[in-house]
């Protein structure tokens, strides 16, 4: 098999994931796009490992070992990322990345006020939710 096929496929998948990370608004969709990019890298690693294990007689199989490590790290990343997204959703009531602009430096001067307002609203929501569950 030509090495070009897996290499081009992985480049295309990586750029698809890049578009998703930049264009999506929901945090979980952004995490899905990150998974796409990681999988593109995995395909590249496996293809080059298969090629090098034949032509260069490389017996370390570093590409496949690194692929396994990437898969494990991606699993850890998705767990932590979802925990963060759920915490943000519980505090703010949204998982919308475009609305999380507390630290943005904009032309509007009411940054601290709106931050305090958001915090108070979050407190109210948390209180309501706790009451509903209690």
């Amino acid at each position: 098999m030509h090495l070009v096929y897996p290499a081009v496929l992985s480049a295309l998948l990586f750029c698809t994931g890049l578009y998703g990370v930049l264009a999506r608004r929901n945090a979980i969709l952004v995490l899905m796009s990150v998974e796409l990019m990681l999988n593109a890298v995995n395909l590249n690693l496996v293809a080059f490992d298969v090629w090098l294990s034949r032509t260069a007689e490389e017996t370390l199989h570093s590409g496949q070992a690194l692929t396994l490590f990437t898969i494990a790290i991606a699993a850890a990343e998705i767990g932590i990322g979802l925990a963060i997204v759920l915490a943000v959703h519980r505090n703010r009531g949204t998982s919308d990345i475009d609305k999380l602009r507390d630290t943005a430096e904009g032309p509007d001067k009411d940054g601290p006020d709106s931050g305090a307002l958001a915090a108070r609203k979050a407190d109210d929501q948390a209180g309501e939710k706790a009451e509903a569950t209690a």
Binding site: A11, C15, L18, L22, R25
Partner: peptide
């Protein structure tokens, strides 16, 4: 959901196509 994509999708499309 109509707001699945953010407003900068055309910039994202440009970046992704150029990178590809």
């Amino acid at each position: 959901s109509p707001d699945a994509d953010s407003g900068n999708r055309w910039a994202a499309l440009t970046v992704a196509v150029a990178a590809a």
